[in-house]
Every structure is written in structure tokens, then in C-alpha cells.
């Protein structure tokens, strides 16, 4: 194949026209023989870009390229390729010999940077140079649908907080009950003396006595003191 292209190019070669190949190397990312046949490469400098189709041997052959500096891009539906800068010049092979030859140089290039800001060299040589065109990424067109899953729902911090506080609310009385009487007494003593820090205020008892059902039923709290004391008063009345 290479032979055919080189011979083909020699047909058309003129004084200052170079020919070279862009080759898609097989990498872990991409098996080049799976590329769609619409993959093509362009050389852009001025006027209509030079276009080359993908061949059976995973190459793009450019023949008859006149001297200049070109932006080479491989266009593909499924992969993104790195852009290349390709300079074609006619130079004297040996200084002073007068014999001029085409020289092709290739570098990595970066869009949005100055043209002189070249990257790594991707090859240099005369006619028939093979330059690797490397893919840098796969195109993934689709958006994942975030489906509903119970685990993701449970991982929500709000839900976690609610679950923990719920556990405390229901678990604490149970814990207290299971404690042996001595421990319990000691605990109550501690609460009274305010070791736990809540003895002086009745916030803890408020929370413990919190009437969820009536709160949900829409009863408005008029104040914690009368409610907290009323059961005691009632008991006295009896």
C-alpha cells in the first residue's frame, strides 16, 4: 500500500511538492481498523483545505503538497485527534550543493496558542515521511440518566441526620430501661446535678416530652412552662 501511494505521488510530484502520510497508530484507546470510512484528514493553510480519505492501511496520504506551514487535523466521528503542525519546505540537502529537496517537519500544536508555540516533534524527513496522528480521546455523546435508587436516596445527608436523630429519640428510652437500677439512679442523679449540662434548663425534658402527635395535629404551643407543670397540678387536684 505504501508503495502504491508513493508511486502514485511520484506521478504528480512537481518541483516543490512534498508528500507524506499521516498514520493512525494502534493504541489501547483505539483499534484503527474500526474507524468509520468517513474519517478524513485536512491540511489547512490558505484557501480550501487539502483533504485525504482514510485508506485501508489506516493512513491519510497527502501528495503534491506545496511548501508552507499547515494545520493538520484528523476529523472523525468517534475520536478526537491531536492537531498537528506540518511544515513543508524546500531546502538544500547539503549546504552549498545546490541540490534542493523537500523537507517535511511535524509537531504537535495547540489550538488557542501562537502558531510558533510548537509542541513535541512528531517527525522530520524528506518525501514519504510517516507522521503519527494520535487519538487523544473518545467521544461520548450521551448523557447518563440519573435513575432513582434507594441507596442514593439514603446517602443524602439530610436523610442521614433524620435517621440518626430518630434513632436517638427512640433508642435512648430503651437504653435507659435496660440499664440496671443502680446505674439508672446514678444517671438520674447526674442529670439532676447537671453534669450533662442540661440539668439547670428544662430543654432536655422539653425535647423528651415533645408531643409529636399534637404538634402534627397543628396545636400551637402557648409556652412550655404551663404545659410542663400542668400534669403535676392535675395530680394534686385528684
Amino acid at each position: 500500500m505504501q508503495l502504491s501511494i508513493s508511486t502514485l505521488a511520484s506521478l504528480a510530484s512537481t518541483a516543490s511538492a512534498a508528500r507524506f502520510l499521516l498514520q493512525v497508530p494502534p493504541t489501547g484507546l483505539l483499534n484503527p481498523s474500526t474507524l468509520p470510512s468517513t474519517t478524513h484528514a485536512t491540511l489547512q493553510s490558505s484557501g480550501p483545505p487539502i483533504d485525504a480519505y482514510l485508506t485501508r492501511s489506516n493512513t491519510f496520504s497527502f501528495a503534491n503538497v506545496s511548501a508552507g506551514s499547515y494545520l493538520a487535523t484528523v476529523h472523525c466521528r468517534d475520536y478526537v485527534f491531536e492537531p498537528l503542525r506540518i511544515d513543508v519546505s524546500v531546502e538544500e540537502a547539503v549546504e552549498g550543493s545546490g541540490e534542493k529537496k523537500e523537507v517535511v517537519r511535524a509537531w504537535q500544536t495547540f489550538l488557542g496558542n501562537e502558531w510558533d508555540n510548537k509542541g513535541e516533534s512528531r517527525g522530520e524527513g524528506g518525501n514519504g515521511l510517516v507522521v503519527e496522528a494520535r487519538p487523544v480521546g473518545t467521544k461520548f455523546f450521551y448523557q447518563e440518566r440519573s435513575g432513582f435508587s434507594p441507596m442514593s436516596f439514603l446517602k443524602n445527608p439530610m436523610i442521614l441526620m433524620a435517621v440518626v436523630s430518630m434513632g436517638l429519640m427512640f433508642g435512648m428510652p430503651k437504653l435507659m430501661e435496660n440499664m440496671d437500677p443502680e446505674m439508672k439512679e446514678e444517671f438520674e442523679e447526674m442529670q439532676k446535678t447537671g453534669v450533662l449540662g442540661s440539668g439547670t434548663t428544662n430543654t432536655a425534658s422539653q425535647i423528651q416530652n415533645f408531643d409529636l402527635a399534637s404538634w402534627m395535629a397543628g396545636k400551637t404551643d402557648t409556652g412550655s412552662t404551663p404545659r410542663g407543670q400542668s400534669p403535676a397540678g392535675q395530680a394534686k387536684k385528684r
Binding site: 478526537v80 491531536e82 492537531p83 495547540f110 489550538l111 488557542g112 496558542n113 487523544v136 480521546g137 455523546f141 450521551y142 448523557q143 447518563e144 440518566r145
Partner: peptide, 25 residues
């Protein structure tokens, strides 16, 4: 590498509505 960075940046800053796989076709 810079291209990589640019690509990922572009991907991050674009919360664009892409096509869902089950909607395509």
C-alpha cells in the same frame, strides 16, 4: 496534555443538556 486539560475544562463548565442514550434514535 494541554488539550486534555482544555477538554476536561470544557466538559466541566458545560452542564449542557446532552442527548440521553434512550432518547437517541
Amino acid at each position: 496534555m494541554r488539550l486534555h486539560a482544555a477538554l476536561t475544562l470544557a466538559a466541566c463548565l458545560a452542564p449542557a443538556a446532552a442527548i440521553f442514550e434512550d432518547d437517541a434514535y
